[in-house]
Nucleic acid binder design. Structure first.
Lengths: 223, 223
DNA sequence: CAAGGAATTTTGGTATACCAAATCTTCTTC
DNA sequence: GAAGAAGATTTGGTATACCAAAATTCCTTG
């Protein structure tokens, strides 16, 4: 990820700071200060902030400092609801249109995740899980679907990052991934849609747990 | 629509020029020229162009002038495919969650459209049809769904604007709208989803016609 | 006359300076 | 001492000036 465009570099940097908790929810994102801190001018910083706003990581307010978004449980639930619809559609279309190679690729991601589950840290696992879902969306052969799904998934980064740490869901997640791959291989659209929906339903349950845990211990901020 | 923020005003202006054909597909959108023409500086023009890019109306290219997008038939079909999934979800959720007042509002739009169909020009009809679909998405009670749907619908402006001129589909469109309203009133999720899906399927057919017609007569550009 | 290259021009990217609105602070007054 | 108003300051919005890369044009040369 050695990308060239400056605003994207800034956005990547800010995104990391937000996800890792260096910029906690509610913190103001003043373009002057952050621009100075990174040694860039306000113009690209401005554009970077807009990008993060589009991803839902920061919240723009009229005539006010943008602040780091603090997604409520309802926000996350709403996101997952839409994500589920898109992934169910992806699964159905993938059964019709995906090449065998694309399905192999999905299976490969699932396989690597299963093989290395205990070797990898939770950030790596998180990335793997993301790419599994991205691969399904891509296999649907609909660029608009792929792009929309990507935008939505980006919004869920923080919530999914937290919920990925729930290692106890390991067996269920791996089994559900395997179910999805099996259904895709069989080109069984009904089974694929059902499996994907079930997987996302469980993600919602996990997120409920995370929010409950956060409520118990309010500030996990890992500097 | 007397909105305040300058970039949005510019975006609205540019969007109209693009949709009305003053800026034909493929035309470059040079920020210097257009900024000078509107008497504003490049900074807000820049932001306006990014907005239109997000809507898919213009296409950003690295180190090159952005150009007015010329969506292929495949692009539009892919958009409609995703839209259909979102509207089907909207219909299902609306059956569960919408208030009676929200359904009344949807019915009101459909009713006005039916009542005034012959009095209104096609641009007004187009706006009415858009608001019908927006109202359904809003009635689902999921802001993320509403927002995503809005973004996608914005991308379809041009295609839908053209297809709205197909007056011969009048009866079918009105009947389908009525079907949807009936299903929502009955809180019949299955019927609502089926009606919405059918409606969108026919939209796709209309778009096919429009593209065929365009292929016959390539440049409708109304200066 | 054609082909290649260099210079100029065009264009987006970035930095900076200025402005207006909103906020916060402080001083005055009751 | 508290409340309100006025001024100072902070902050995002906008305009403009500068820069680097890319495209185009024109000149030179074979």
């Amino acid at each position: 990820m050695v990308d060239g465009t400056l605003p994207e570099q800034i956005a990547t940097r800010l995104r990391r700071d937000i996800l890792r908790g260096k910029l906690p929810p509610g913190a103001p994102v003043k373009e002057r200060d952050h621009a100075a801190e990174l040694g860039v001018s306000r113009t690209p910083m401005r554009e970077a902030i807009r990008m993060l706003a589009k991803e839902g990581l920061v919240q723009l307010r009229p005539a006010r400092s943008p602040i780091v978004a603090k997604p409520s449980f309802e926000d996350v639930a709403h996101n997952i609801e839409v994500m589920a619809a898109l992934e169910v559609l992806s699964a159905r279309l993938a059964c019709q249109r995906a090449s065998d190679a694309e399905i192999d690729e999905i299976a490969e991601v699932a396989g690597r995740m299963e093989r290395d589950y205990d070797k990898l840290d939770r950030l790596d696992l998180f990335e793997l899980d993301m790419s599994f879902h991205r691969a399904i969306a891509r296999a649907a052969g609909n660029p608009v679907l792929d792009e929309t799904h990507g935008a939505l998934l980006a919004r869920l980064w923080r919530a999914r990052y937290l919920s990925a740490s729930r290692k106890r869901s390991r067996d269920r997640v791996l089994r559900q991934h395997a179910d999805i791959v099996t259904a895709l291989r069989a080109r069984d659209a009904v089974a694929a849609q059902t499996s994907v929906q079930a997987h996302l339903d469980h993600l919602l349950v996990n997120v409920v747990d995370v929010f409950d845990a956060e409520e118990a211990e309010p500030a996990p901020a890992e500097k």
